[in-house]
Design a protein around this nucleic acid. Structure first.
Length: 426
RNA sequence: GUGGGUGUAGCUCAGCUGGUUAGAGCGCCAGGUUGUGGUCCUGGAGGCCGCGGGUUCGAAACCCGUCACUCACCCCA
């Protein structure tokens, strides 16, 4: 760009077009297919909500709520926030409408977080995800995790690890948090600079800290699994054995607490080692058995996960997977040099017959139109010039035939669909 | 929020320690004796060198500011 245009996409946002957009389309189609197989229905909720929906859900002490939310006031004085993640809105909708359970929703949505962009991290990124409300059966945990896992497989990803942990429910977790807080308080001066100030607000965050100082303290401190009550321990055991029964490998990760406060019991994260960087988490989720209550509903168990579209595609690239995710190659390209625009009714007819059909515009030369036809990737070209027009015929040329000279023949206009069916097999 | 790097045609980039009509490859358009694509050849369009100011006889090149992009820290998708 020699000079910056007057308007550019906002900092940390991107336009998606061209081949990249085809990957998005394919990725979403694969996710929709997986969701369908598991019995999920698509749900649409607003991309902005009362700021309380997110504050109560993800926790006021989380980084996201503290400094990353896009909060704004509308003309009526209501305070809203652009959604920073997908779960809270779905649960709010569930509480509001009280649908029959289990409520199984899948979605694709932008998510907004105000932070400095870098590789794999944007102010607007996009997620696909699912949520299940109304049951705490560990078999559902297994289903949600396996849906993610099979989805990643369908994208061609192979170098993915599943990290999993249980954070327990209210009672056993609070005992753990208390024990953790005691230890942190005791070794307060050994913590990293930031957590010396904040450890008391949310001790669990310290488990996530990557500073050696904090790691040294928490390594010697209590670990979550030791504090699980019998119920939570049993629940988690069923989740892991369920995963084993369907051949999904996992890594027990006692430190895994994730960024949102609403998680209870099962939490998990998928990392793509090919990404190598700090931004190697391609998806994550967990159970949130208290969230519906926190948003004003009846106590209702829930679990879900979200996965970042941009990062999934980065991971695919990093693994060297370059197969297209969806076929968007046209069947037919119509070349019309009659000057009478016979192409318009012809392409309409072909499209109605079910063929993906392109054409050229602006009355360009045959050579020029053939170039465009070739680049479009179309399987066949239909040529109509004055000769064909006069004879009531169409020249059908197989653009993907190895033999340049023998690849074409004349067909009566009325027989064109039959000829195409024979050649294309559809 | 903090720090580093970069900003020259649609894309990827050259432009030596400042010297005066700014280049290449790819892409795009048009031709190669007039109805045809992949290769090849020829020609063409397209850049106030991110923006503003300064130093200088002279700046795309040096200095300052500003905007943007990018990478890293924090944290996450």
């Amino acid at each position: 760009m020699s000079t910056q245009p007057p308007f550019q996409s906002p900092v940390g946002t991107h336009d998606v077009y061209g081949p990249e957009a085809a990957l998005w389309e394919g990725l979403i189609a694969h996710f929709a297919q997986a969701a369908y197989r598991y019995g999920f229905s698509m749900v649409h909720t607003p991309i902005f909500e009362d700021v309380g929906v997110f504050n109560r859900g993800i926790g006021e002490h989380s980084d996201v709520a503290k400094k990353e939310m896009y909060v704004f006031e509308d003309r009526g004085g209501r305070v809203y926030a652009l959604r920073p993640e997908g779960t809270a809105s779905i649960v709010r909708a569930f509480v509001e409408h009280q649908p029959t359970t289990p409520f199984k929703a899948w979605y694709v949505t932008p998510a907004f977080r105000y932070e400095r962009p870098q590789a794999g991290r944007y102010r607007q990124h996009h997620q696909v995800g699912v949520e299940v409300l109304g049951t705490d059966d560990p078999a559902v945990d297994v289903e949600v995790i396996s849906l993610a896992w099979r989805f990643y497989q369908s994208l061609g990803l192979t170098n993915i690890r599943l990290l999993i942990n249980s954070m327990g429910h209210d009672a056993c977790r609070s005992v753990f948090v208390g024990a953790l807080r005691d230890v942190l308080s005791e070794h307060k001066d050994s913590l990293c600079e930031e957590h010396q100030k904040t450890f008391s607000d949310n001790p669990l965050r310290v488990l996530d800290c990557k500073k050696d100082a904090c790691i040294a303290v928490t390594d010697a401190g209590p670990t979550l699994p030791d504090f699980l009550c019998d119920d939570c321990r049993g629940h988690f055991a069923k989740v892991t054995s369920g995963l084993e029964s369907i051949g999904i490998a996992y890594t027990l990760t006692p430190r895994l607490v994730r960024g949102f406060d609403y998680y209870t019991r099962t939490t998990f994260e998928f990392v793509a080692d090919a990404l190598g960087s700090a931004q190697n988490a391609i998806g994550g989720g967990g159970r949130y058995d208290k969230l519906a209550e926190q948003l004003g509903g009846a106590p209702t168990s829930g679990i879900g996960f979200g996965s970042g579209i941009e990062r999934l595609l980065l991971a695919r690239r990093a693994e060297g997977v370059d197969a297209p995710l969806i076929n968007r190659v046209p069947d037919i390209f119509v070349v019309d040099t009659t000057g009478d625009d016979v192409a318009t009714p012809l392409v309409d007819h072909l499209r109605s017959a079910g063929y993906a059909t392109l054409r050229a515009f602006d009355g360009r030369s045959m050579k020029s139109q053939m170039k465009v036809a070739d680049r479009s990737g179309a399987r066949v070209a239909l040529l109509i010039g004055p000769q064909e027009q006069a004879a009531g015929e169409i020249t059908l040329r197989d653009l993907r035939s190895g033999d340049f000279e023998q690849a074409q023949r004349r067909v009566a206009s009325n027989d064109i669909v039959a000829a195409l069916q024979e050649l294309l097999g559809k």
